[in-house]
């Protein structure tokens, strides 16, 4: 589904990604962990197409297409979804209208008729239960005045509405208490299928208790330095990131 080959990117003059290799197949959940500043969020942003970052090398194949050549909106319509670490507050744009526009843009791209009001409402009701999000929240301006937990639930709700093939969760757990974390993780788990995949970016192992990954990768200093199964996450939790750093220094020395 997604094949990242030697991806390098920088912001202004600072190299952040220094050659990332990663392959994700349908049905898989991959977790990317790493200390602050390792490049986790940059990777998520580059994949979604944020223009602040300049890709300086490498390639990304998404469902047989060159992802890096696509505009952010086309990536979304092809089935890529980024759940933002910091969802943006947009006063004056109603959440419901926003989601309706997004859903129908995607349908148009797929050559489908737009959902009428009744169909849209029905779908919305179903997906709302998934993340236990309230109707009153959705009639408000997009994310405006939402609590941290409400914003994250809104991200997962949007993901449920758009049914992406690849969902990228950028530190979705940050700022969530355990109850909110459980709700969000539960939503994600219900969306998992053999046809879609998830890339979960996180600093802490805690989220991975609820969204159990098939593979765990450790990102450090712009590169994936170790890959393994979910046991690697537990090892990191126990020993901290310092043991990875120490290991690396030992091998380069």
């Amino acid at each position: 589904m997604l094949k990242i080959d030697n991806l390098q990117a920088r912001i202004e003059e600072k190299e952040i990604l220094k050659g990332i290799n990663l392959e994700i197949k349908p049905g898989e959940v991959h977790a990317i962990m790493g200390p602050n500043g390792s490049g986790k969020s940059t990777l998520a942003s580059v994949l979604a197409g944020r223009e602040d970052y300049e890709v300086t090398g490498g390639s990304v194949d998404f469902l047989g297409k060159d992802l890096l050549e696509m505009a952010p909106e086309d990536r979304a319509k092809e089935g890529l979804f980024l759940a933002f670490q910091y969802p943006v507050e947009i006063p004056g744009v109603s959440t419901t209208n926003f989601i309706k526009t997004a859903v129908n843009e995607k349908r148009k791209y797929q050559g489908l008729e737009p959902l009428d009001a009744a169909q849209f409402l029905k779908t919305m009701k179903e997906k709302m239960q998934l993340v236990q999000i309230n109707q009153s929240l959705l009639s408000r301006s997009l994310n405006e005045g939402f609590s941290g937990g409400e914003k994250k639930r809104n991200e997962i709700f949007q993901m449920a509405m758009l049914e992406p093939k690849l969902g990228i969760l950028d530190e979705t757990d940050s700022g969530l208490d355990i109850d909110a974390l459980r709700i969000v993780a539960n939503g994600v788990n219900q969306l998992r299928s053999k046809d879609n995949a998830f890339l979960v970016v996180t600093h802490y192992q805690r989220l991975l208790d609820y969204i159990v990954p098939d593979f765990v990768h450790v990102l450090y200093n712009g590169k994936i330095v170790r890959s393994g199964t979910k046991e690697l996450a537990l090892e990191l939790e126990e020993k901290g990131y310092d043991f990875i750093k120490a290991e690396l220094e030992a091998t380069t020395a």
């Binding site: 979304a76 969802p87 947009i90 926003f98 989601i99 997004a102 843009e105 995607k106």
Partner: peptide, 8 residues
């Protein structure tokens, strides 16, 4: 970017 990332 947020809007575009949703396919708009």
């Amino acid at each position: 970017f947020y809007l575009k990332a949703r396919g708009i």
